[in-house]
């Protein structure tokens, strides 16, 4: 028996919104420790990794580990039927071929349930090596979204360059070039608005705008985003889901031909 209850279904709505550009379907691996999802986008350029810890749920029970393959568009249709402040309970029997989502209104005046067929997905699981990153940047997530959106008007790639002085986002194309520089802030009382840079070595890497823009669909999940970079390894874009877990996107860099 698997059962996971979360007071606010809006968290799931936000997660689905954040990944649906990249993934059509994905396996949710449920175990005692929580719910995990790892999946590559169709072109194998990026990887989505979601972790929702069992202790972050209001109720969590997982007698036996199970993997639930789900079509994310259909899952999104179901969550559209829930109000943001509805409580959601996800239930499945051991070895079941369906999963049930139950939504309860705050005052229990409305209870609805939706049963969805599960899919057998043959998804390969990738080992992600532990990396000490050369640069770790934390900045307001809406600011990162804004920069990606603004720069993608001018080019297909964004060069992210991190030094002690700050982070520079650059692009160029037929129109010309664009540069946005972000400096570390000294604003300690407003953590959500702060920019912090931990740098061991300066790093400059190039990434496809299309993917960065997709990742920023996760902005409503967290006020801050963390960008981790090292030479010649994928960028990690991480959104912490308060008290529940994280959503990470890995993106392979572009390299000179």
């Amino acid at each position: 028996m698997f059962e996971a209850r979360l007071v606010s279904s809006s968290t799931f709505k936000k997660i689905l919104d954040a990944v649906k550009d990249l993934l059509n379907e994905a396996s949710f691996d449920c175990s005692e420790s929580g719910i995990q999802l790892q999946a590559m986008d169709n072109s194998h350029v990026s990887l989505v990794s979601l972790m929702l810890r069992s202790d972050g749920f209001d109720k969590y029970r997982c007698d036996r580990s199970l993997t639930m393959g789900m079509n994310l568009a259909n899952m999104a249709k179901i969550f559209k039927c829930a109000n943001n402040d509805d409580t959601v309970t996800i239930k499945a029997q051991d070895d079941a071929d369906t999963v049930t989502f139950m939504f309860e209104a705050k005052k229990q005046e409305k209870i609805s349930d939706y049963e969805m067929k599960l899919m057998n997905l043959d998804q390969e699981h990738l080992g992600i090596p532990e990396t000490d990153f050369s640069c770790v940047i934390r900045m307001p997530s809406p600011e990162f979204a804004r920069i990606c959106r603004d720069l993608s008007q001018f080019g297909e790639s964004i060069v992210i360059s991190c030094t002690k002085e700050g982070v520079k986002f650059s692009t160029g194309g037929d129109i010309g070039t664009a540069n946005v520089k972000i400096a570390q802030t000294n604003n300690f009382d407003k953590e959500e608005e702060s920019v912090t840079i931990e740098m061991q070595e300066p790093v400059t890497l190039t990434f496809a705008c299309q993917y960065l823009n997709s990742f920023t669909k996760a902005t409503p999940l967290a006020p801050q985003v963390q960008l981790s970079m090292s030479d010649n390894v994928p960028l990690v874009v991480e959104y912490q889901i308060p008290d529940l877990g994280h959503l990470r996107f890995y993106l392979a860099p572009k390299i000179e031909d």
Partner: peptide, 14 residues
């Protein structure tokens, strides 16, 4: 010109 690498160039199957 730059070339897009695949995530599989970095992360291998478990």
């Amino acid at each position: 010109h730059s070339k897009q690498k695949s995530i599989l160039d970095y992360f291998k199957s478990d």
